[in-house]
Amino acid sequence: MHAVVCVKQVPEQNSVKINSDTTIDASGITPIINLFDEYAIEEALQWAEKNDGKVTVISLGPDDATDSLKKALAMGANEAILINDDSLGQVGAQGAAKVVAAAIQKLGDVNIVFCGKQSTDDETGQFGPALARFLGWPQLTYVFKVHELTDSQIVVDRALEDTLETVEASLPVVITAVKDLNEPRYPSLLKIRKVSKQPIPTWTLSDLGLSADSLGGTINIAKRTPPPPRPSGEILSGDVQTQVKELVQKLIESQIL
């Protein structure tokens, strides 16, 4: 079994600050592995350990995305590849999926790809399905539990809005992971030592036989509107008995009580 995990480096949510002109303040952003991708890494590692397989993590991003790849290596992944090219700065989910699909085809012997169900920055949820389309493989989205995974077959539970669906598929396949699929492990402190010195190969578009024109349209953010400020609260006046009476009344009116 050769599993690929697609890892996106995203800003930690509470580290993102919006400037007064609604642009994003890039200073002070803490980069982390996309939450859902951590579950994907853990699941791939567990099944690779059971099946004596191999895990390769791939990230498309700037040079500092190697931090996330090194974390995945310290968790136990065998290989890591960074895809970085000047023309990929504004690439959308579809274009990114096309590039990563080319990388997976270049690896050749991959029979399963694990992705997070979406990224916590763009939140399009398109990457996994688009990747499956470019690879021409079946896709199993919203995977909540993997029951069985062999070199030829997979059985999973998909967590849909109002139902849990058990699905069987033949490999190769793309799966997207939901939260709580497992409990992601911490990077091993022993592996950190080795990984720090491990060079991570960088592939460019030309390494993948692609050109910037072949990636389709880009998506630009035309406008960003911050959520409306929270309305100020109401302070009740009068003696305690009146205040409590009024408070209870308001809670009943708001259907909280």
């Binding site: 911490y186 990077p187 091993s188 402190l189 950190i192 030592r193």
Partner: peptide
């Protein structure tokens, strides 16, 4: 499981073999 319990000791004895600076930071 994270490898903390033998942090500064050699790998062959179950440690992670990190330096004294790393051990202090931990």
């Amino acid at each position: 499981a994270a490898g903390l319990m033998g942090l500064p000791f050699a790998e062959e004895y179950g440690g992670a073999g990190v330096d004294a600076i790393s051990a202090a930071l931990a």
